[in-house]
């Protein structure tokens, strides 16, 4: 089951920031905002959002929907535009098992440093 994220304020820039972070984690994301779906009547957004969420998509909205039974998370636009606040918000969702975790993998350069230390200590 997907869910809805309402980005209150901050405009398309805030929605795009959220979308970028979610896509980077491999989540299925769709933004249903007037700018991103120009032909879609506003009245059609709740039903579309609910349908997408039912099929596991995380739906980004710029206004509060009326979608009974669909989980909704809310982030203020200023938080969505702030990398650290966005990270905290996503971390909460990650721990709740609602979005994929950030990889936490070491960058190649970092792994090389770890290998060097392991060699120095005689482990490798």
């Amino acid at each position: 089951m997907g869910f809805l994220i309402v980005v209150r304020g901050g405009g398309e820039e805030a929605v795009a920031a959220m979308e970028g972070d979610l896509l980077a984690r491999g989540a299925a994301v769709e933004a249903l905002t007037p700018a991103r779906q120009p032909g879609m009547p506003e009245s059609a957004i709740p039903a579309s959002a609910a349908m997408l969420a039912k099929h596991g998509v995380i739906v980004l909205l710029s206004s509060d929907p009326s979608c009974p039974g669909v989980p909704v998370e809310v982030i203020q636009g200023e938080s969505a535009l702030d990398a650290e606040a966005r990270s905290t918000f996503l971390r909460r969702l990650e721990l709740a098992g609602r979005i994929p975790a950030a990889s936490g993998e070491l960058e190649p350069g970092e792994e090389e440093l770890v290998r060097e230390r392991l060699q120095k200590l005689g482990y490798l």
């Binding site: 990650e94 721990l95 994929p100 975790a101 950030a102 990889s103 936490g104």
Partner: peptide, 10 residues
Amino acid sequence: ISPHGGRLVA
């Protein structure tokens, strides 16, 4: 194996 909670905190 994934760390607990999905990501290794640093």
